[in-house]
Computed example of a mutant assay.
Amino acid sequence: MRIALLSDIHGNLPALEAVVADIARRGGVERIVNLGDSLSGPLLPLETARYLIDKGWLSLAGNHERQVLEVHAGRAGGASDTYAHGCLGEPELDWLRLQRPALRLDDEVLLCHGTPRSDCEYFLDSHDPAAGWALGLATADEVDARCAGEAAAVIACGHTHVARALRSRAGQLLVNPGSVGLQAWQSELPAPHGIETGSPDARYAIIERSADGCWHAELIAVPYDFAPMAALARRNSRPEWERALLTGYIR
């Protein structure tokens, strides 16, 4: 069994198309799943939604799907969610409403956006304000706590945009495919921090169960023509997105 994991597309349709072409080139992938945060941002939320709806892949609700719907319900939102909401029509909003933050593919694979218990909790990474601005690898104790007793052989997550493949103490494969569409970001909560990959490449992963029943992960970086998306971010008054899309750095 070979499954492609996509996450954190953030309305970057050209990056998504490059990833899909790379999956087709490699062959043998039986299923593509999307772990959420698909549309939010100053790029192409409507076009990306329509592309994903047409593909019919299983798509999860990330924290930004929830936040876009909160904007629709009249709650104040951030710039990225507000922009995405303003581009979407009722068919796309209805599609968002059907999504769930976590789903089980079978007894072996659990899909979530953040962790099994929250759509906005970091799973494989942590931020220690005393250690600086960047996210760092979560400790084994943190990872085990965030598994929340989940016994699936594979847990796939997104949210941080950091591509990682770890093993829990119980031997579970824990995979974050990284971000398809945004390779650097920053947050002010609960303390200022961010992530920089140092590359504008689109990221995804393939997980595979071999004949002996063991699961393996391949983390993949795909080059694409990022300049038009960076220019679009600039036109939409988001210089931090422009820099992230051009370079994989935010500062």
Rank of each mutant, 00 (worst) to 15 (best):
H159L: 08
G171N: 04
A152G: 07
L173I: 03
I155Y: 02
I155Q: 01
G178D: 02
N176I: 07
V180D: 08
H193S: 13
I195R: 09
R146Q: 06
A153L: 15
W185H: 13
I195F: 15
N176R: 04
P190S: 03
L189K: 08
E150Q: 10
I195K: 03
G171S: 04
E150S: 06
I155L: 14
A170T: 13
A153W: 07
A184H: 08
A151E: 13
L189H: 03
H159W: 05
A148W: 03
A191V: 06
W185M: 09
R164Y: 01
A152P: 07
L166G: 00
A153M: 12
G158A: 10
R169M: 10
C147M: 15
H159I: 05
V180N: 12
A156W: 12
Q186A: 15
V162E: 01
E188Y: 00
I195D: 00
E196F: 09
Q172R: 14
S187Y: 06
T160Q: 05
V175C: 03
C147F: 01
G171L: 07
T160F: 07
S168C: 08
A165C: 06
A156E: 11
E196S: 14
P192L: 13
G158D: 07
Q172D: 04
H193P: 06
A148P: 00
V154A: 04
L189V: 03
L173H: 05
I195A: 10
N176P: 01
A163Y: 01
W185D: 11
G178N: 06
S179P: 06
V162G: 01
P192E: 14
W185S: 12
A153S: 15
G181S: 11
E196N: 11
A153G: 13
E188K: 06
L173G: 04
C147H: 00
P192A: 13
R169G: 15
G194P: 09
E196M: 15
L189W: 02
G158K: 09
A156S: 14
R164N: 04
L182F: 07
Q183W: 04
G178S: 08
P190L: 03
R164T: 04
G171Y: 02
G178W: 07
A163T: 03
R169N: 08
D144F: 06
E188M: 08
S168R: 11
A165W: 02
S168L: 09
C157Y: 03
G194Q: 14
C147G: 00
G171V: 08
A156R: 11
D144N: 11
E196R: 14
N176A: 05
Q186I: 10
D144E: 15
I195P: 00
A163M: 04
